[in-house]
Amino acid sequence: MKRILLSAAVTALLLTPLACNFDQLLAEKVMVGTLLSTPDVDVSLNAMAGLDAGTLPDGGVPEDERLTIPGQTAAFVFFATRNGEEGAPAPIANATVRIEAVNGTPIVLDNKGAGTYSLTTDFSDDSAVKYQNGATYKFVAEHGGNSHVGQVKDAPALERIETLHPAGGYVKHRANQGLTLKRPALASADQVRTLGFVTVVPLGTDGEKGEPTYTNMPKEPLEFLEIVALPTKWQAASLDIPGTAFPAPDSNYLVVFQTVQMGGPETNNLFTGSAMLVGTADVGMVHTE
């Protein structure tokens, strides 16, 4: 599967020479990087019980009647050496990796092994990494005395999904029934949509988040290369969440819609198929019947 995806991405990129330069096409190093943010979410205790509540996550819930789920910024990088067009890249485990926002504090990622580097910060921590709308982010991997740099320009603002914000403060929904999210209309016909990712997470009565029941975001680093070659799958005007994302009745789920800007390599020593993604999220709650 990984070999097929990598080959498909390379083939598509070979057919679009204007999207890259020759040095990047031949570069041995490849990088996949993401910087994704979610806001603080004020969840009404009444809403969690299936009763009407105030608007969320925009506030308006009395402090003694709400549960605040802190926002997070999660950074991830996979850095590797390519093995031809179809072979799986070999992870580089001894690099130094950071993410830089222009005029911001660099984010140094922890080495997790097998070519992966990551860091997740909670907004309740004063030292947390704060997402900046409109910023330019650089993904930097230093290895063997060389800097390999990818870049994302104009980090997108939150894209509000009206379906997630009904008057009652949460979405009343039947268990095992699908849900469609409609994205806001584009400002003009020639505007290109940002990428849109959806993740559904069970929410316990104490605010604890469980393992996702659904996501359309790639799960493996190499799968992100498919986005570079064929992004339209994630640029649709509406997204359908299957009923299996809401399996249990009388339960709560957070629906996270991530709007994401994609970038690519900045230095010539980074493969043109490298994918860098930066974005922020709109969040709503679903209570099943």
Rank of each mutant, 00 (worst) to 15 (best):
P62W: 05
S127E: 12
G263T: 08
V278M: 09
D282N: 10
E223L: 03
R193A: 09
E162D: 13
T267E: 06
T73P: 02
S251F: 10
E226M: 14
D250Y: 11
K29V: 11
G196F: 13
A275D: 04
L181G: 00
P221Q: 08
D154C: 08
P221E: 07
A189G: 06
T232H: 04
T244K: 11
T194H: 15
L35F: 13
A88M: 11
I92Q: 01
T280S: 10
G84N: 05
A114V: 06
Y214C: 04
G87A: 01
L56C: 14
L230T: 12
T288W: 00
G263W: 03
A95W: 07
G115C: 05
E65I: 03
D64M: 08
N94A: 13
P57D: 08
G204P: 04
T38E: 12
L35E: 07
A19L: 15
F79P: 01
S274K: 02
L26M: 13
A281I: 00
G204S: 14
G50E: 02
P202R: 06
K112Q: 14
G150R: 00
F224A: 04
I241V: 06
K209G: 08
Q177M: 11
I99Q: 11
I107R: 00
A95C: 07
F22W: 14
F271H: 15
P184N: 01
F246P: 03
P106L: 10
T116R: 14
P156K: 05
P70L: 06
V10S: 14
V278I: 12
L18Q: 15
S238C: 05
A74W: 02
T272Q: 05
A114H: 13
I99R: 02
L164Y: 06
V192K: 14
L254R: 07
T38D: 09
L45Y: 11
T244W: 02
D240C: 02
